[in-house]
Amino acid sequence: MTDELRGHKVAFLATDGVERVELEQPRGALHGVGADTELLSLHDGEISARQMDIDPAGTFTVDRKVADASVGDYDALVLPGGTMNPDQLRMDPAAVAFVKAFMESGKPIATICHGPWTLAEANVLRGRRVTSWPSIRTDLRNAGAEVLDEEVVVDGRLISSRSPRDLPAFCNTVIDEFAKAMRPAWDPTVER
């Protein structure tokens, strides 16, 4: 285990219907490099997860309602997918406002599968390069994004991936890009 992200806090924004592996694996990878994480949601208590959008896959405990969260409390944001999860998030004004403010902050955001739907609703994809689950690509294009069919796409501080099968590459890229974004402007450990 390394400590690349020790002392940094990452928000995960999800609600009922989140694809379990798309929350669990990135969160575990970030914990593995020392990051603290908080699960933000639309309600207190627990959210129910799914496997392949259909099968119940347990629950996750919510740390804070997104309506009570501030972008300034976090260093990065992860938007997991699952069809029901982002479909509900994009209908919630507090969730959309949080995502929009996070994107405008310049802090890194990672999203996978159907997760970019919330970014489209926040109207922050115009001119950005992203990838996603195939069924929402038209929505992303209509929101002004250039949509690619690649395992992982990095556009500045925005990281996106297509599906659970891309999770190994997604998790590695998220760690690398978050660490890069959180490194001080002058880092004595980096050769110039």
Score class of each variant (00 low, 15 high):
M1D: 08
L5H: 01
K9R: 15
K9I: 11
V10Q: 04
V10C: 08
F12K: 03
A14N: 02
D16C: 05
V18G: 01
E19C: 11
R20D: 14
V21L: 13
E22D: 13
E24M: 11
E24Y: 13
Q25H: 12
Q25S: 11
Q25I: 08
P26E: 12
P26L: 06
G28N: 12
G28M: 10
G28D: 14
H31D: 11
G34Q: 01
G34R: 01
D36Q: 15
D36R: 15
D36I: 02
E38G: 06
E38P: 04
S41V: 06
L42T: 07
H43P: 01
G45T: 10
G45V: 05
E46G: 05
S48P: 03
R50F: 06
D53I: 05
D55F: 15
P56I: 09
G58Y: 07
T59A: 09
F60R: 02
T61K: 14
R64Q: 15
K65E: 09
V66R: 03
D68W: 13
G72Q: 14
D73Q: 15
D73H: 08
Y74W: 11
Y74A: 04
Y74V: 02
Y74L: 03
G81W: 00
G81I: 02
G82W: 04
G82A: 10
T83D: 13
N85H: 08
P86D: 02
D87M: 14
D92R: 05
D92C: 09
A97P: 03
F98T: 00
V99P: 02
V99D: 00
K100P: 02
K100S: 09
A101L: 07
F102M: 15
M103T: 10
E104C: 07
S105G: 13
S105H: 07
P108C: 05
C113Q: 08
P116N: 07
T118R: 01
L119N: 02
L119T: 06
L119Q: 05
A122G: 05
V124K: 00
L125W: 03
G127H: 09
R129E: 13
R129A: 12
V130G: 01
T131E: 05
P134R: 07
P134L: 07
I136G: 01
R137T: 07
T138R: 14
D139Y: 12
N142H: 12
A145T: 04
E146Y: 05
E146V: 14
L148M: 12
L148F: 15
E151T: 15
V153S: 01
G156S: 12
I159N: 01
S161N: 10
R162V: 06
P164M: 09
P164N: 08
D166R: 07
L167W: 02
A169C: 06
C171N: 15
N172K: 14
N172L: 12
I175W: 00
E177N: 05
A179K: 06
A181S: 15
M182Y: 06
M182Q: 13
R183N: 10
R183K: 15
A185P: 04
W186N: 10
W186H: 14
D187S: 13
P188C: 08
R192P: 03
